[in-house]
Each structure stands twice: as structure tokens, then as C-alpha cells.
């Protein structure tokens, strides 16, 4: 098991290294000098030289990369030229906001996805299956931004029962926090509830037809026990892959949600940085998002082993 995880970890680190190369190259591959871009054409040579040396842009490119990585690991992601804000500090402020919306999205979609999936599989062919399956298809087909706007229109503006702008930290006021994330979480989880529902349904249907389920029935186990202990564990194996994607979405998928609901997280920050060509923020965001992605994939690989002994035995 230790060997397996360290192998996976090694592969993850290589992936991160390659991504860091891409993120670093951003500044050098895009046309225009990043400093002049921000300071404007009228900047004095002195100013330009000062900022260039501040960002090590006057150094050889390999050394720039090494310095950048070293600073990044130390937690120094530079200072945004545009707003003169410390990138690490802002990241530390904005990342929890993104997580405070993203983690509930994750929990809600996994919970309801599996629940609906099991219900539709057990009650297949009945009206409840048809209603939920149709809803799942709509959920997969409708674009996130459209659904978000619809939620704002209905619950925010027409019924006026839920706030649809801004974010309240849970430490400040927990009830207000729940209210402020209600619509973003609903919008963000719809697609994933739909995907997980469909996947769970088809996996459950397959598993429920297996011989060992018949054995369990013939041994007098109750239907509930069969569903949740015998069948679900087998059905979960393919679902975990989707859940892995889900974890990534906490950070990566926040862009649209945060923009639509004006939430001061990483997503809205990244959009602002891209429009302003604020490379240092973009680099930081790209790296954070890819670190989360890589480690969620690692987590999925490990989870597989915990659920499926056939995979675990290969670890040795």
C-alpha cells in the first residue's frame, strides 16, 4: 500500500511539474511585456526597470523559473501589479470562500446523486423513476449559467426569499451564510446530481442483477441491507471516478458560479485577473486549481483500493 501510494504520489508530482512549466510560460509566451502591459506605454524606464528586477524578469529564464517555484513553495506568489495586492494574502482570503461554496456543492451532489440513483434503480419503471430520470436528463442538458440565472430570477427576484449576491462567512453569521450559498449550491450541484444519479442508477441496476445479490436474498437478508451493504459498495466503484471530478470542480468550476452570484472567491478573482492580464494572479490560480485536481485524482486512486479489494491486492 505504501509502495502504491508513493508511486501515485510520484506521478502526481511529475504532473504538477509539467503544469508549473505551463503556468510559468504564460507570461513569456503571450505577446507584450507583462510589466509594460500593466504600467502602460507612458511608464518611465526607471519604473519599468524597477518592476522587471522586482519580478526577476531581468534574470535568465531558467533562473526565473527556479526562483518562481522557490518563492511559490515558500508561499510568496508575488504582488499583483494592477492592484498592488499580495497574491498569497489575497489567495488565503479568497480560497476559503471558494471552499465554503464548493464543499457544500460536493456534499449535496454526492448525497442526492447517490440517493436518487438508488431510488430510481430500485423503483425502475415506476413514475418516481421516470420523474427523477427526466429531471436528471434536464439537469445534464441545461447549461450552468442559464440555470443559475433562472434561480436568481425565481427565488431571488420574483419570490425574493433568498439573497443572490455576495457571500457571508460562516464564522460571521452561520444562518446568513447558509442563505447566501443556497442558490449557488443549488445551481452548482444540479449538473452533478444529474450525472451521479444516472451513473448510480445504471450501476445499481447492473449490480442488482448479479448472482451474489440473489445469494444474499436466498440467505434471508433484508432488501435494505442488500441495497446499502451488498449492492452499493459494488456500484460505488465507477461512481468514485465521477466524484473525483467533482472535487476538482470545487475550485475549477467555481468560475461561472462566483461570477453569476458575485462571490469573492478564486473564480471571480481569476476572471478579473485574466481580463487585466494580471499574470501573477493567473499563475497562482492555475497552480492552485491544478494542485487540487492532481490530489483529488490521487485521492480517487486510493479510494478505489479501499472499496475494491481486487485493486488493493495489486498494490503489494
Amino acid at each position: 500500500m505504501f509502495y502504491y501510494i508513493s508511486k501515485k504520489l510520484f506521478v502526481s508530482l511529475i504532473t504538477l511539474f509539467i503544469i508549473s512549466l505551463f503556468a510559468f510560460s504564460l507570461m513569456h509566451l503571450l505577446p507584450g511585456d507583462p510589466v509594460i502591459n500593466v504600467l502602460g506605454e507612458g511608464a518611465t524606464d526607471e519604473d519599468i526597470a524597477y518592476w522587471r528586477s522586482y519580478y526577476n524578469l531581468d534574470q535568465p529564464i531558467l533562473k526565473q523559473y527556479v526562483l518562481w517555484v522557490r518563492n511559490f513553495i515558500k508561499g510568496d506568489m508575488g504582488v499583483s501589479l494592477m492592484y498592488e495586492e499580495d497574491v498569497s494574502e489575497t489567495l488565503a482570503r479568497r480560497l476559503p470562500v471558494t471552499l465554503a461554496v464548493g464543499i457544500p456543492i460536493c456534499i449535496v451532489s454526492i448525497f442526492f446523486g447517490i440517493l436518487f440513483g438508488v431510488i430510481t434503480a430500485v423503483k425502475r419503471g415506476t413514475w418516481i423513476d421516470q420523474v427523477l430520470t427526466t429531471m436528471a436528463n434536464i439537469g445534464i442538458a441545461s447549461p450552468l449559467f442559464w440555470f443559475a440565472i433562472m434561480l436568481i430570477l425565481i427565488f431571488g427576484m420574483q419570490l425574493n426569499i433568498l439573497p443572490f449576491r455576495g457571500f457571508v462567512a460562516p464564522s460571521e453569521n452561520f444562518v446568513e451564510y447558509l442563505k447566501s450559498i443556497a442558490l449557488p449550491v443549488a445551481a452548482g450541484s444540479l449538473g452533478f446530481v444529474a450525472v451521479i444519479t444516472r451513473q448510480t442508477r445504471s450501476n445499481m441496476l447492473e449490480v442488482l442483477n448479479q448472482d451474489y445479490i440473489r445469494t444474499a436474498r436466498a440467505n434471508g437478508l433484508s432488501e435494505v441491507s442488500i441495497l446499502f451493504t451488498e449492492a452499493l459498495k459494488n456500484a460505488l466503484i465507477p461512481i468514485i471516478t465521477i466524484m473525483g471530478m467533482q472535487i476538482r470542480i470545487i475550485v475549477g468550476g467555481s468560475i461561472i458560479i462566483e461570477q453569476v452570484f458575485s462571490i469573492p472567491g478564486i473564480g471571480s478573482w481569476l476572471i478579473r485577473a485574466i481580463t487585466n492580464r494580471d499574470y501573477w494572479i493567473v499563475q497562482a490560480c492555475v497552480l492552485v486549481i491544478s494542485i487540487v485536481t492532481v490530489f483529488s485524482n490521487l485521492l480517487v486512486d486510493i479510494l478505489y483500493g479501499f472499496i475494491d479489494p481486487r485493486i488493493r491486492k495489486k498494490w503489494r
Partner: peptide, 18 residues
């Protein structure tokens, strides 16, 4: 299971794999 026990044809698939 308690009073009438069943033994099925396919031992390869009759037990839960996980």
C-alpha cells in the same frame, strides 16, 4: 437461509466480490 439454504450453480459469481 435459516431453514432452507440455497447453493447456486455459479460459485464464481455467487459470493460478493468486495
Amino acid at each position: 437461509g435459516a431453514e432452507i439454504a440455497f447453493i447456486f450453480q455459479e460459485p464464481m459469481t455467487a459470493l460478493n466480490p468486495v
